[in-house]
Nucleic acid binder design. Structure first.
Lengths: 390, 390
DNA sequence: CTGAAAGCGCTAACAC
DNA sequence: GTGTTAGCGCTTTCAG
């Protein structure tokens, strides 16, 4: 019963090498079953081996292995035992031929592996493993040709679905329709409302940031942020205005500085703004800006948060925690976004697409630059093990 | 000749949904050929469709599509034309069944998607696309169970090879031998000398850093770095010592501060060290440390580089460029490392493994904190489009 | 130069 | 309960 697998006495390291020296017929039928091992080449067990050794038919072996159909418990057990002994690994490529499911989803990034995609990746992968699905990675950079190419590759591999990520939440031109798999846009969004997109609620993030400054007691709040051409920038402003309005305050245009999302820009803007010593709170459009602002305030001898409180955006721990003092920041919960995106895609694959754009709320990571305690559930939960941390 | 594909009049969005309502026999044979499109479900063309429409046999169609064998040029052309018209996409899972190659390689990271893996990813992917191979992503975190699980998954998917990355260059316990595919360790290394590893030459990096400080005219150089338990830390020290020795100088133990790779640690160490005002150069073990050091010097009124020159490590543009002044830094060329790792793996897949540990030289990104001109070819080439930049 | 036939590893419909 | 049979889409002999 525990009949060992044949171990062919050719010493070599790869299937390819074997393929080259193999006589036409004999080894050919074994072509994709070669394993390397210390003893040389070993042949991977197929379901036929299992069936033979377990003394059942191939069909029964299949059912036994997949827990399908009805059969005597001891038969099933025997099949499973044999499979374990022979170190059987069902060839998923073969099974997908008949089932039509590959349990593979593609991830197409238009952003390389910049700042936003990696945290997403972690969430996506975690959600997919539940369904034993795997992730196929495609980086289209910002190149339409590459993108087209990858879509072909993904189609050729018959992925069950696709997640698209990008560098901004702005609606991007949709992928070609009539793709042979459902698509879900994560972080980035599609301009076609029929598509499914899951992204960040930047309005909410802006609201959280401003409200935190208000709680800290700030009354004269200014905003230093990125280019106005970026949707997220405009939405965060809208959110901040809503928070201020709730207290009867305003964020007029002349108190907003648009620029780059960089430390340098933050530093320069802060120097300029702080000639007005009545400012008591700054909402920074990114942690990089926040970092530059903090440095500028430090240089000017302005105390944080006593004189001016600061809230950043992104909760990029590495940066926010190293700021002096540590930077309170809005977290976009990208890990969770990835997770939910993958779950939504799995539902779409199961025939329940969820078209339209959905936005996920942000949370707040309270730190010393604006330490007012957060009493409700918007506090940042550390469910993001994948943020590069220090 | 341009006979259109049948377009079944069932409106629905996914194969699954079709599968559910499909009568047993008829649609069953079409199970994995459903496509979505505006008109409803469309059936993907198979090689049989091509053959039929082109008026040849399946075998001929196959040869024609793959450019194999001999055949009349016009026959081949006809086949290709039909394939294009029918938007034919060969099912790679099916072909891998017969060829034994999946043109898929796995990437197993033990580091999540932290600091070092993403730049690597870009290089790996670029090298793989040349071979039309795809990347299957597996994040084992630091969990042995997950790792074991993923190895099974990869085996079940019959990947052609595997790249393993990790968070440090220290030799890690090898994967189980007798894996059914060749393995290449990138950045991380295997403690088994039979395995193939490609990593960074930290000794060279340390040498570059110290030599740059020497060129700047520094004579009393100190080193602030991470924990001594990290191999890279020790190797960089060895390299720095070699550079200093070339000038008859030394880097005695008491001028080395071990700590964490953080800004905070760099800041504190610099404050302590600079009570000794004869120090004129600091080699920082990471850009984070460098950043902290620069801030400390700034606070002490010490000018960079006039009073003290600074060289960092990692060339993490985001950090190094934002330092005041911008931080000169050693680049580990991770994009290139990824590229070369993938190329080496492809050779291993082709039967030419390259066992042992190979180390790739570093380069130097010269910036204002230590601006001595670099005359030779060790200057940092900007072939790393994937470093998150600003 | 082309095609018929066999087979890759696995699943599923249907008899027995 | 279990086995027989017929595929999935593609490649590869090998005979014509």
């Amino acid at each position: 019963m525990s009949m060992p697998l044949a171990s062919i006495a050719i010493r070599c390291r790869t299937r390819q090498a074997v393929g080259l020296r193999s006589p036409p017929r004999f080894l050919n039928s074994l072509r994709n079953r070669f394993f390397n091992s210390l003893e040389g080449v070993v042949v991977a067990a197929t379901i036929r081996d299992i069936a033979r050794v377990a003394g059942v038919s191939v069909a029964t072996a299949s059912k036994g292995l997949n827990g399908k159909g009805r059969m005597r418990p001891e038969t099933r057990q025997r099949i499973l035992d044999v499979a374990r002994q022979l170190d059987f690994r069902p060839n998923r490529n073969a099974s997908s031929l008949t089932t039509g499911r590959t349990y593979t989803v593609g991830l197409l990034t238009r952003d390389g592996y910049g700042r936003f995609t990696p945290p997403l990746l972690g969430g996506v992968e975690d959600a997919l493993t539940v369904d034993t699905a795997s992730l196929l990675l495609c980086d289209a950079r910002r190149d339409a040709v590459r993108e087209r190419h990858y879509l072909d590759v993904l189609a050729a591999r018959r992925v069950d679905g696709l997640i698209v990520t990008g560098r901004a939440t702005d609606p991007a031109p949709p992928l070609p329709r009539s793709l042979p798999f459902p698509v879900l846009h994560a972080y980035t969004t599609s301009s076609d409302p029929e598509d499914s997109s899951l992204t960040v609620d930047d309005e909410h993030g802006g609201w959280l940031a401003a409200r935190q400054l208000l709680r800290q007691g700030c009354r004269r709040i200014v905003h230093i942020t990125g280019p106005a051409s970026v949707l997220a920038v405009r939405e965060r402003i809208a959110g901040a205005r809503r928070a201020l309005a709730e207290e009867g305050l305003e964020l007029p245009d002349h108190l907003i500085t648009y620029g780059a999302f960089t430390e340098r820009a933050g530093f320069a803007a802060a120097q300029r703004l702080l000639t007005d010593r009545t400012v008591d709170g700054i909402f920074c459009g990114s942690d990089q800006i926040g970092r530059g602002v903090a440095d500028a305030l430090g240089a000017l001898g302005i105390r944080i948060p006593q004189d001016v409180a600061l809230v950043g955006f992104d909760n990029w721990t590495l940066l926010a925690a190293a700021t002096r003092p540590p930077l309170c920041s809005v977290d976009m919960n990208l890990y969770r976004l990835g997770r939910l995106a993958a779950e939504s895609l799995l539902r779409a694959i199961d025939g329940h697409p969820e078209p339209g754009v959905r936005r996920l709320p942000c949370s707040l990571a309270v730190r010393a630059s604006c330490p007012a305690p957060v009493t409700d559930s918007t506090a940042w939960q550390d469910d993001n093990p994948l943020v590069p941390d220090a």
